[in-house]
Design a protein around this nucleic acid. Structure first.
Lengths: 231, 231
DNA sequence: CCAAAAGTGTTGACCGTACACCCATGA
DNA sequence: TCATGGGTGTACGGTCAACACTTTTGG
C-alpha cells in the first residue's frame, strides 16, 4: 500500500460505550472502575482503543462483548469527542456508542466479575474525563429514539406486561404516564402479540404477557412506515 | 507528558464538511475536484486531516475557512466513518460536519478561485469514497434539524421575504407547501420582525422584507422552549 | 372481605390540512 | 388593462390529554 498521507499527524482513536439497562423499574447505566492511569480508580464508561483493522462499530462490539459476553445488541453511534485535552494521558479522539441491554440475572454475575456495576441513572457519580457529558448526550438520544422507534423492547425480556413496558417508558422520560393513554398508543401500533399467559409476580390479578412482533415491525419499516410515539 | 498508551495503534483522523447553500431557489452542495491521489479528479467534500493540537470542530472550521474564507457558520457534527477500507490510500477515520451558508455573490468568486463548485442537490454526481453516503446522512439531518430549529435563516440574507423563506423550505423538503399554512406556522413562532421595506425583485407588487429576531430566539431557547416546525 | 394492581372509554381542546379569492403594480 | 406574484381566513378531521370506575384474586 502506498503512503499517500505520510506527513500527517496520527492519533489514538477510542470507542466508549454508554450502556443502558432496565432492572426492577429503574433505568441503569453500566460503569467500570478504571484500573490504569490516568484516572485510575475513577468510574468510567466501557471503552477501548480502535485497532487498525476494525471499523468503529466493530470496536464497540468488541469492547461490549469483552465486558458483557453479549453480541447482537442494539448499538448506535452517538458522537465523536475530540478536544485535545480531554484525556490528560495523550490526545485521544473518542467515538461514543450507546447500547440497550436486558439486565438479566446471569448478566449481573458476568458484569460483577468484570468489576462493572449497574448504577441507577438518577444517581450517577462523577465520571472520568468527559464521560459525564457523553452520558448526558446519550440520555437525550435515548429519549429521542424512544419516540420514533419501539425501542423499549430491547430493554425488556421477550415476554413482558404492559405495566412493565410503561414503567420503562416512565424511567426513560422521568415522568409518570397515564395508563389508558399509554396502552392506547402502544396497542394502536399493532406490533404486540397478546399471549394467553399472565404474569402474577407483581399483582394478585396478574397482567397479560405480550410479545413484540419483530416480523410485523420489519415489514412496516421496509414499507417506510414512521413511528411517532409522542409520549 | 507520559506515554500511557504506548502500545496502541494510531490512525489518521479527517474531517469532511457537507456544506449546503441556497441560491436562486435551489439548495446546493459545495463540491471540490480532488487534486491528489488516491481519487485524483473525483468530486469530493471539503476535507482535511485533524492536527495534533486542534479539536474536531476547530479542524472543520479551519477547513471551511480555508475553502470559503468564512468564520462563524452554523457547523454541526454529523457522524464518524471508520470502515478500514473507506479510503484506499490508508486507513482514515473521518468525522463529518455540516454547515449552512448564504450563497452570496462575493462568495461564488472565492469558491470558484478554490476550484470549488456549487451543485444543486437534485443532481449530485458520484463522489469520492463514501462521501455520497455522508451527503445522504447530512440531508436527513438537515430535514430533521429544520423541523426543530428555525434553521432556514442561516441560509438566507439578513433581510428576506416570506416567499423566499418558503421556497427554501420547499427545497429542503423537496415538496410544495401551502402558502397560507406556511405563513401561519412561521409567523406564529413570533420570531420574525416585519420591516417597512418591500423587495420588488421578483414581483410587481413586491413582498415585505422580514428580519429574524435573534434576541427573541435566544431568549426562548434559554427558557427551554422547543420549536416544532412540523412541515 | 379487602387491599392492590390490572384493565377499560369518552370528551374537549388544539393543531394540521385543505382550499379560493382579492390586491398591487409594472409593463 | 392584464398578467404576475403577494397576501389573507375558515371549516373539517384527527390526535393528544385529562379523567374514574370496575375487575380479579391472594391473603
Amino acid at each position: 500500500m502506498h503512503q499517500y498521507y505520510q506527513q500527517e499527524d496520527r492519533q489514538l482513536v477510542a470507542v466508549d460505550c454508554v450502556i443502558f439497562g432496565f432492572d426492577k423499574g429503574l433505568l441503569k447505566l453500566l460503569l467500570l472502575k478504571r484500573n490504569f492511569e490516568p484516572g485510575l480508580g475513577k468510574w468510567s464508561l466501557a471503552g477501548g482503543f480502535l485497532q487498525r483493522k476494525e471499523s468503529l462499530v466493530e470496536a464497540a462490539d468488541r469492547v461490549l462483548c469483552k465486558l458483557t459476553g453479549l453480541k447482537d445488541v442494539f448499538l448506535e453511534q452517538l458522537y465523536a469527542y475530540g478536544n485535545p485535552a480531554r484525556d490528560p494521558g495523550e490526545r485521544v479522539v473518542s467515538v461514543t456508542y450507546f447500547a440497550l441491554l436486558k439486565v438479566e440475572d446471569y448478566y449481573k454475575d458476568l458484569v460483577i466479575e468484570n468489576g462493572a456495576h449497574w448504577q441507577a441513572i438518577e444517581n450517577i457519580p462523577e465520571l472520568l474525563f468527559d464521560h459525564g457529558e457523553m452520558v448526558e448526550k446519550a440520555l437525550c438520544r435515548l429519549r429521542l429514539v424512544a419516540k420514533s422507534q419501539p425501542i423499549g423492547f430491547e430493554l425488556l425480556p421477550a415476554k413482558f406486561t404492559l405495566p412493565q413496558l410503561q414503567s420503562l417508558y416512565e424511567a426513560i422520560y422521568q415522568k409518570e404516564l397515564d395508563k389508558r393513554n399509554f396502552r392506547k398508543k402502544i396497542l394502536s401500533m399493532d406490533l404486540l402479540d397478546k399471549l394467553d399467559e399472565k404474569d402474577k409476580s407483581s399483582s394478585k390479578k396478574g397482567a397479560f404477557l405480550y410479545r413484540f412482533n419483530t416480523e410485523k415491525y420489519k415489514e412496516l419499516v421496509a414499507k417506510g412506515f414512521y413511528f411517532s410515539l409522542d409520549i
